[in-house]
């Protein structure tokens, strides 16, 4: 494992996450370019069989411990640090998901090495690893080098297609033991997502609103547009946090991942946390007053305009078109 590229295999509720396969796909590319091994480290409790799904890696190290049943950041980082102590990789990739958030930061501290957050890609320049990072809400791209190795890289979801990180190969699986102290943080229970009045994942058309909608009073504009298109209204994080829409309407990291035929993003800046949940939509149209809003990097069509002015005009145009079609 020393000198390898290493990926944290994130398991949650009995499955390996999509973000893990994405990380394996990137890790495989980097490991092959460097001519080194790709290793995955899986932590869990009675979860050894999940190692078989990590065939993109040459070697899977499985760590079994009751405290690792859930990915609690501190016990998980401690376990990883113990595994890596004598077998230091060149890079350790941790998916930036709600399951693993904090693990990378803690692991870097524990190893006394550099952590780099917000990565979307890894390059090799003159034999050195460079992380390409998306920061400032998606507006800025930074190329970052660590002073030393191993470097712990937090990887945004979507870096590579997950399919590229799946393999039917059987990896070599080794078990490692760790010694952990009791955790002062314990999971009591999971609370399932509340079923809303509308299941966003089953809609062909979603009209999603962000901060640019400005107030709850303006939601009616988005509802009218959604109605004209035969779809439903969704929201980005700030809209949900303001209480303007229920949790069941949230798209993004902590909400739902959707793939409608049409996704209309109104006044949504396009932070990576939101894009993660809608980037696979078949057709994406974005309206935003900021010409540099990162949502235009993922949209197929973009309109730079005041959303509050644009929505009613667009709704009227669609309704007119439909009326013509009905009478044709």
């Amino acid at each position: 494992m020393t000198g390898s590229i290493c990926v944290f295999a994130e398991q949650w509720r009995g499955s390996i996450s999509e973000a893990t396969y994405e990380a394996l796909a990137l890790g495989r590319e980097v490991a092959d370019a460097l001519g080194v091994q790709l290793t995955a480290i899986l932590t869990g409790s009675n979860a050894r069989e999940l190692a078989q799904t990590l065939g993109a890696a040459d070697l899977v190290v499985y760590v079994d411990h009751p405290l690792l049943a859930e990915t609690l950041p501190q016990p998980t980082a401690e376990a990883l640090a113990q595994v890596l102590q004598d077998r230091r990789p060149r890079a350790f990739i941790v998916p930036l998901t709600n399951v693993s958030l904090g693990v990378g930061t803690l692991l870097a501290l524990r190893l006394g090495t550099a952590g780099i957050n917000f990565c979307k890609d890894v390059r090799i320049a003159g034999g050195r690893l460079q992380a390409v990072c998306v920061m400032y809400g998606g507006k800025i791209e930074a190329t970052v080098e660590a002073a030393g190795e191993p470097v712990v890289l937090g990887l945004w979801p979507g870096a590579r297609p997950a399919e590229k990180g799946r393999s039917s190969r059987s990896p070599v699986v080794e078990e490692a033991t760790v010694s952990l102290r009791d955790s002062p943080v314990l999971l009591r229970r999971y609370v399932e997502a509340e079923a809303g009045d509308v299941d966003l994942t089953k809609q062909d058309v979603l009209v999603a609103v962000g901060r640019g909608i400005q107030s709850k009073d303006n939601l009616g504009l988005a509802e009218d547009l959604a109605k004209s298109l035969g779809g439903a209204v969704a929201g980005s994080r700030p809209v949900i946090d303001q209480g303007w829409l229920p949790l069941s309407r949230q798209v993004g990291k902590s909400g739902l991942s959707v793939k409608p035929k049409l996704y209309v993003a109104l006044g949504i800046s396009g932070a990576p946390e939101h894009v993660e949940g809608m980037k696979d939509s078949a057709l994406i149209v974005a309206v935003n007053s900021d010409p540099r809003a990162p949502i235009f990097n993922v949209a197929h069509y973009g309109i730079v305009a005041d959303v509050l002015e644009t929505i009613p005009v667009l709704t009227a145009a669609i309704e007119a078109k439909r009326a013509v079609a009905r009478h044709a």
Binding site: V99, P184, L186, L187, A193, S254
Partner: peptide, 15 residues
């Protein structure tokens, strides 16, 4: 309460 993907929440006891 911690947020997980897909609208799932986890309830944690923290000392």
């Amino acid at each position: 309460t911690k947020e997980y993907p897909g609208g799932v929440r986890g309830e944690f006891e923290v000392k």
